[in-house]
Write a protein that binds this DNA or RNA. Sequence first.
DNA 1: TGCGTGGATATTGGATCCAATTTATCCAAG
DNA 2: CTTGGATAAATTGGATCCAATATCCACGCA
Lengths: 234, 234
Amino acid sequence: MTTPPPILDLSQMIERHRPRFRTASEFVEAALREAILSGVLPGGLPLRQEELAAAFGVSRMPVREALRQLEARALVEFHPHRGAVVVEISAQDAADISAIRAALEPAALRLSLPHLTRDDLALAADLIAEMDAEADPGRMGELNRRFHMTLYARAGRPRLLALTEQHLAAADRYLRFQFAALAHHPRSQDEHNALLAACRNGDADRACALVTRHILAAEELLTRFLTVRAAHSG
Amino acid sequence: MTTPPPILDLSQMIERHRPRFRTASEFVEAALREAILSGVLPGGLPLRQEELAAAFGVSRMPVREALRQLEARALVEFHPHRGAVVVEISAQDAADISAIRAALEPAALRLSLPHLTRDDLALAADLIAEMDAEADPGRMGELNRRFHMTLYARAGRPRLLALTEQHLAAADRYLRFQFAALAHHPRSQDEHNALLAACRNGDADRACALVTRHILAAEELLTRFLTVRAAHSG
DNA sequence: TGCGTGGATATTGGATCCAATTTATCCAAG
DNA sequence: CTTGGATAAATTGGATCCAATATCCACGCA
């Protein structure tokens, strides 16, 4: 008797994204992306086109287009005639993403900071407060992303911002490990508050230094945790 | 009488890429990407799926998958039920790409520099020499890209390097304007030589500063040229 | 004469169908 | 019992077909 195929529970993503898009392709792409980033579809999972199509209630074609887009975003890998697989997470990959964030985010912040409005700063403060009250890692990632992007939003560089947001989102795949790696949370909030204060003062150098440290601190903690974990399981 | 449809001369890309790939999708994606980056398919051009399929000798399906990948790389835009268009170039977009390069490349260089070998440095020197003898902008872009990537190659961060190479390639769309913006070439070569010298000395701070200046200098020249040009035509 | 409406046409988006390749299974031989 | 190979099943890649949507142009009307 063969093991029953793992039921893909994508209902969350379906109801959240389906009404927002005009084409099935874009809907499937958005839903799959969130499913991967949130960990519903773990690294290494083979993505059977037929199965996904059934789960989303569409044919295989929009699934294929969506998978190609996710391939370009380095979230899935294609192996010719063998199909697509969710890319694995690893300490190396986490470091890779952190290096990219540490390069992009200070640049975005420096361009954005002079144009931040009082409203932007107030929104950022609100988001920090919301994070204090939030326990769910998924929502937490969303709030964290919005906090950071609020500070970068006035950079006036669409491509730079899109890349930054992509890699902030990519970091979400490691969020649950950050939670597991003991209470990173309160420290992270202190860093958020310090960063916001520097932005309020218009101190670009300090703000950039803080955001860089913030990213690298999280990465170091995460790398240590993932390395230990890999050593145990391997 | 309607104007004859513009014949897409993609023969260069076809013969260069066709044998390198196992699936039609990947072949079409690589060929289209190069056609856009090299300027054979200019910004604003509507990409008719049927026409491309005929030009490549395949059906519409691999074309669609390729277009989706290029969309994720911000080289084409989809408009629902109206098709894909090559994204326009502009002074703003050039500045955007430069900002990304100026963020990524010093980071890559700093990680890579300590691990550069004698052979890497020799190869970089060879590439500078080749550039001196090269007049064709297309080949020039390729050599320039290889020179830069040679210096970054030992960073040990696949995602960071892939992003860097993508945006080096994206800058190629503006290469012919850089040539037009009077002889940028010799100055650029001086900068390349200085950068290589700093790498030889293992002076990371100086190398990073030089590569940043190199990128921003090219951008300033380009922005001025494109702005003037836009003012004339507009 | 200008503008809005309606139908024809072109083109995309999605579904189905077929071919090519890989993986799994089973049997035989060592 | 293991290993090799042939064959069958599963799955992807590609082509074709159909439906949905947008654009274009003619026509009618103010």
